[in-house]
Design a protein around this nucleic acid. Structure first.
Lengths: 158, 158
DNA sequence: TTAAGTGCAAACCTTTTGCTGCCCC
DNA sequence: GGGGCAGCAAAAGGTTTGCACTTAA
């Protein structure tokens, strides 16, 4: 896990992997959910793929590994993990929902040319969001903050 | 147009309507697009509905007005307006895409109970976004920032 | 006149659901 | 053994497309 610190910004450049397969499985056991071979395989693959994973990503990765698990099962497993608070949904407007492991909160900047996603976190913005919500009479639950731009590599090759 | 100013926040409480039907139509003429009766009706309805409008909203409003315009035409007109830079797409995760008039940039806070959307704009956040992008090597094109919470009214009735 | 736009239905794509049979606990 | 789960296919729901007809310019 590597951090780049600039004044009060913390940029996380690598995917943190503090949630392990065992942790997920024991979380599900606590919630009295059955641990099936399919669920194990889906969780394993999801964790190994890392980042922002779509249902299709998992489906084809499993197929590569000679595990033919139905799309419906993957959808059901992911929404179960979402309800358990272990993953969250993201929508980068490419027509499919992506899931990511809930770890430390962060936001995203997405390259509009190559699709690269870099994560960032800014404490000042986090605080401002709370203030704004309060002033508008809202109690803040969560937020979504995405920056769209063109990355350095893509600008070089333009 | 009403503004509520708190320190450096500006909250826009009413939808600004500076883009008129005539402006949109003359923009389309400049781009050598045909002005059909359907397009006129769609633009008119869209502007009158205001805010964050879905294709369905327009479809049913037109039907109320005894104008039966096909869904496909509405989709095509809106994506045309989007390409002309006059409207932008929003996705509030309710299963349908919403469109809004491109005017002064603002962000949204959405009540997770009643769906109410309030717009806000915060200069500090705007500036921080630019800084973050720069530091990560990106040139910023646009952004999406949505806060999810529960509004005052909904909390009262809980 | 004629290229562009419309309407309709069919196609598309992702996601959800119903149901039968299976398997973890 | 029993209730939750997987698989499959069908349905759902929003959005796009193909094509013959119509219309603005």
């Amino acid at each position: 896990m590597e951090f780049f610190v600039f004044s009060d910004y913390i940029y996380k450049m690598e995917q943190e992997k503090k949630i392990t397969k065992d942790f997920v499985i024991s979380s599900l056991k606590k919630k009295k959910m059955k641990i099936t071979s399919q669920r194990k395989a889906i969780i394993e693959t999801f964790l190994e793929l890392g980042g922002h994973v779509s249902v299709e990503d998992i489906f084809y990765e499993l197929r590569k590994r000679k595990k033919n698990i139905g799309l419906a099962t993957i959808y059901r497993t992911l929404s179960m993990l979402k309800e358990a608070g272990l993953v969250s949904e993201r929508d980068f407007r490419d027509g499919r929902t992506r899931f990511e492991i809930v770890s430390e909160h962060h936001d995203h900047i997405i390259c509009q040319k190559c699709g690269k996603v870099v994560e960032f976190r800014d404490e000042t913005i986090e605080k401002l969001q709370e203030e704004i919500s309060k002033r508008l009479g809202f109690v803040l639950i969560s937020h979504r903050h995405e920056l769209m731009g063109i990355c350095e590599d893509c600008r070089k090759s333009m």
